[in-house]
Amino acid sequence: MSTALLIEQLLNGLQLGVMLFLMAAGLTLIFGVMGLINLAHGSLYMIGAFACALVAAATGSFWIGLLASLVAAAAAGAIVEILVIRRLYERDHLDQVLATFALILMFSEGARWLFGSFPLYLDIPPLLQGAVPLPGGGQYQLYRLGIITVGVLVALGLYLLISRTRLGMRIRAGESDREMIAALGVDISTLYTVVFALGAALAGLAGAMVGALQSVQVGMGEPVLILAFVVIVIGGIGSIKGALFGAVLVGIVDTMGRFLLPQALTLVLPPSQAALVGGALASMLIYIVMALILAVRPSGLFAAQS
């Protein structure tokens, strides 16, 4: 195994982590401010990807599609918040799980109703086509580097938003004391709608960017949703910093597990068997890591005060 391959795999893990962070940031923000578990977050991811694919196909520009994905996901988020979600803030987590589970069914079938059953086409923009050389002789896909950059910018932007702006101040206030912020005369329901739309837009952005690498189809949000939940639980629900850390951890553990476990097992097993057992273990790995972390730290690594 060469250093170049190792560097490449670490970058791959980082990129997967960054992508998960975009999903997880929205989830954890919504949970932190409103106390809501949103299973339908994966549907917003799907909406972003569909919007980007459709608009990119119509206009011929990926970038306009990317913009459309932000707008579409934020709009869908705002509408759902106003129609459904805001009735759930006062309910227990169980009702939230059920209601957002129902929303998944409706979004998935609705998307199929509107856009048909066949996967849509979305390609990487010409600007980011191809690969760049890595130190040590490897190559790395330019577009994936682009995703890493966007993820870092979003993390930075969120940090500035929350620590430096008026909206961020209200979000922080909302996290620590809900009654107080209402008493201060902040329009709490508008704040909630804005936060939900922001989380939705981040999910939509992730969906659009990943859509160019994967297949844009109904149900694409579900595997990512489960991973994003793993991320925020490991990081500590409600903590953006935790989401960033958890996302990178999950991304790297998952990628390295898929890469190294089958190889390690060839030391004790014949190649075919090693590939099978290694693959099986790799698919369970992040859940094992999550269980271990929660066994030691029951509220995640960066638990927000509850």
Binding site: V97, I237, A280, S283, M284, M290, A291, S299, G300
Partner: peptide, 28 residues
């Protein structure tokens, strides 16, 4: 292990254990 946690963490850790068994069953 799960009962050391509560609330949303409990929901998610039980999910994690189920996912472990699910992936094991698929690939075994």
């Amino acid at each position: 292990i799960s009962l050391r946690t509560s609330g949303v963490y409990f929901i998610m850790i039980t999910l994690a254990f189920a996912q472990m068994i699910y992936y094991f069953a698929i690939s075994w």
